[in-house]
Design a protein around this nucleic acid. Structure first.
Lengths: 260, 260
DNA sequence: CTTGACCTTGACGCTGCGTCAACCCTCCAT
DNA sequence: ATGGAGGGTTGACGCAGCGTCAAGGTCAAG
């Protein structure tokens, strides 16, 4: 007659595990001796070894009792099911590994490398750290909504940065937002450039029409993000409105210039 | 301002997950509106997306906040650690898959194929189902203790089954244990054969010496197993004792024939 | 006014045990 | 006889990451 410790040692498991198997009814509780100790016969050893064999192979404890009673075909079927689960789990983890290999701190987190390249380019033309971070967060919002299309958009965006007007715009905006003047006169200059760029884009037919995008939320969020990160964006929007454009990131020509 | 449902939908997670992140302090609790609803700003969206990006890559939630604040080198280090864990986990599961592929119902469970072959051979020479199952359980005990050495022992064991005496022995034992006679006369015949075989083995120097095996427990268990599966084994042991042999599975010549 | 879709907190469930806590039993050396 | 080490006993919480009720309060629309 064996004690629980001897049984566990023989089968290569912990005492706690054996008690757990009792609790869930996987291994029957044995008789107790006079002092209340569990006393095991050899059949318990054999059962426990079988249980561990299946458990080590990845069979969930809840299915082991069924499998020990199953006939060959039911057993094989159960094995297939479990193997499928294992395969799925391995795939999941391997996907995780591939993802994690792509991760870097800072700009590239939650963004495809194309966008990271765009942000690097932004920095190199003189955009401030704050500016780049704000852009990054905006693109994170876009990437979450259109993870595939964003990659198509980036080449155009990057090319756009060759335009001296755009460079000037980002520099001016950087200066404005790095300063703390409530009503910086350069806001007007920025608005002028943006209106001019919008005009060019409109002339080239590049302004998005409402139907092309199924969902306004990302743009609204980016708006909110910009305002949250610096309230002077609100003033910038007003200035754009005066110049006949509705927004600040997704521009639309206002139906009528408001009489002032 | 977004509700929790809108926030969750945008980031592609469940509402429950967002609340969980609040609970563990991963995502800060936002302000509440007049009715007690949580109201989220855009920064929460960006944070949540970053959190999901890391979580989807297999980063444990408990480490995500640290990683979001880490510099590039600490981040990379953390990534390595997590990747190592993922690799280990994948290996574990792949090991499980290899194990599970080997599993079959019945005889081969918890036994190497060599032993299964031995058991098949046993059946083919006329051993009864009960007999084979008892042998199987015994070998399970042995395999648990000496998983490597058992494979070396099997060829000899299988060859042993070519001996007509052994065949006769198993048939007689099968008949005895399939019947229900308390004191079957064939027990004596079985004992005679076993004694004879023991004599041959002893002469060939094949009897194990006590020092060769570091551990008696498996043999003791097999003894107990046999007695548990059929009490008449006890009688068989007595008969062996009368013939000058100590045991029934691991035999030793008794020091002196007891004067009767 | 009702209905249905959201929101709130609180709590248990899952998987397979690890790890106290607080106490009892046995055996061995002194 | 005694004391301590090394067993055993039940009971309970903890872990990871949420899913899933329960039992409500709120909001927008018909």
């Amino acid at each position: 007659m064996l004690t629980i410790g001897q049984l566990a040692a023989y089968a290569g498991v912990t005492v706690r595990a054996v008690r757990h198997y009792h609790q869930i009814g996987l291994l029957p509780e044995p008789e107790r001796d006079a002092s209340g100790y569990r006393r095991y016969g050899v059949t318990a050893v054999v059962s426990l070894i079988k249980i561990r064999t299946l458990a080590d192979a990845g069979v969930p404890l809840s299915q082991i009792s069924r499998m020990l009673e199953a006939d060959a075909s039911a057993f094989a079927e159960a094995i297939r099911t479990i193997d499928d689960h294992l395969r799925d789990e391995i795939q999941r983890l391997e996907t995780s590994r591939r993802h994690i290999a792509q991760l870097t701190a800072g700009d590239t987190l939650a963004l495809p490398p194309e966008v990271a390249a765009y942000l690097d380019r932004l920095r190199s033309i003189g955009a401030s750290q704050r500016m780049v971070e704000a852009e990054r967060d905006g693109w994170i919002l876009v990437a979450a909504r259109w993870p595939d299309r964003i990659v198509e958009w980036m080449p155009g965006k990057i090319a756009h940065l060759d335009d001296p007007q755009v460079v000037r715009l980002y520099r001016v905006l950087s200066e404005i937002f790095d300063g703390d003047e409530e009503d910086d006169p350069r806001l007007a200059e920025a608005a002028d450039i943006m209106a001019c760029l919008a005009e060019q884009a409109y002339a080239a037919g590049e302004v998005l029409h409402a139907e092309e995008v199924d969902d306004d939320l990302p743009h609204d969020l980016i708006d909110a993000l910009a305002i949250e990160s610096d309230p002077r964006v609100r003033r910038l929007r007003e200035l754009m409105r005066e110049r006949g454009w509705s927004g600040w990131n997704r521009m639309e020509r206002l139906p009528k210039p408001p009489p002032d």
